[in-house]
């Protein structure tokens, strides 16, 4: 379908963009790459009065890598992450997860800020942000605030963003070179929405046991979730076959995936357990 009617503005400063959003009485939306919003408009699932295009905003497209981790500007595109070879070392989980985002053409326009704000339950970027203790910098009429991913995602396509707020940056904490990690997702066709996906990492202590386990899942709930029962089953243990089976069992026990046209909940539960076990096996190989 054709999108519904709306007005369009392309401000040149962040302050101007926020003012435009604030003037929209809750019916203004941000657009940048538009790779999630344009389909929503075409299906008429969204019908904003005003689109505020971030096209002319400077300084939001930078990838910064430092001692405190990785900072991704909101307008960083999937292809920018793919082409930045530093990230393979500085944040391998991010680099791997992003390989699974959508298709070639979409990757040339889709942005991390858009994915975070769109908050699709199956999307990789929200999963990375949540699993890696990411923090979003958010600018609105009330000023600038920083919010943890753990409280940012509130439901399907829902976040804590106010109507006049814009995500400007995602910060992912520093990644130790010795960290063990894995990303696994399953979709029937490459680039499609994942039926289930797992993101995980942990460090090894002096006894070679897992510590600081972080295990996140996408595609199995209203928003990306951390699997705390599975993390608890992994922490303090050597990552053996028995341990992997216990972690996968704990994960499956702790989730209640929805059924839809793509897969019944029981299938998603089994899929998540399998992906988690395979990911853990890969992490020790």
């Amino acid at each position: 379908m054709k999108p519904p009617s709306f007005a369009y503005a392309s401000p040149s400063t962040l302050a101007e963009a926020v003012n435009l959003l604030a003037s929209g009485n809750g019916n203004a939306k941000v657009i940048s790459g538009g790779q999630s919003l344009m389909p929503m408009l075409a299906f008429r699932l969204a019908a904003p009065d005003l689109l505020v295009d971030l096209k002319h905003l400077k300084d939001l497209g930078t990838i910064t890598i430092g001692d405190d981790g990785v900072r991704l500007g909101a307008k960083v595109r999937w292809c920018d992450i793919e082409n930045d070879r530093r990230l393979v070392r500085s944040h391998p989980l991010l680099a791997e997860a992003i390989k699974h985002v959508a298709h070639y053409q979409v990757r040339n326009r889709g942005t991390i800020g858009g994915s975070l704000a769109h908050a699709d339950p199956s999307a990789e970027m929200p999963g990375v942000a949540l699993t890696c203790d990411g923090e979003m910098t958010i600018v609105g009429s009330g000023g600038t605030r920083v919010e943890k991913a753990s409280s940012f995602f509130t439901g399907p396509l829902q976040t804590s963003l106010e109507p006049d707020e814009i995500v400007t940056e995602l910060h992912l904490p520093a990644w130790p070179a010795t960290r063990r990690w894995a990303f696994r997702e399953f979709a029937r066709r490459k680039g499609d929405f994942a039926m289930a996906g797992v993101l995980l990492f942990y460090d090894l202590d002096h006894r070679n046991c897992a510590v600081d386990a972080h295990i996140g899942a996408i595609g199995i709930a209203d928003c990306p979730i951390r699997l705390s029962a599975a993390e608890a089953a992994l922490n303090g243990n050597a990552v053996t076959e028995d341990c992997i089976a216990a972690v996968a069992a704990a994960a499956k026990e702790s989730i209640d995936p929805p059924s839809d046209i793509h897969a019944p909940g029981a299938y998603r539960r089994a899929l998540l357990g399998t992906l988690l076990a395979r990911g853990l096996q890969h992490s020790i190989s």
């Binding site: 369009y8 790779q35 389909p39 295009d53 096209k55 292809c79």
Partner: peptide
Amino acid sequence: TVLVNGEAVRSCLMLAVQ
């Protein structure tokens, strides 16, 4: 699919004004 500044993009997912 068309090329915008040399990059392949989906022209149904981009507004003409963009």
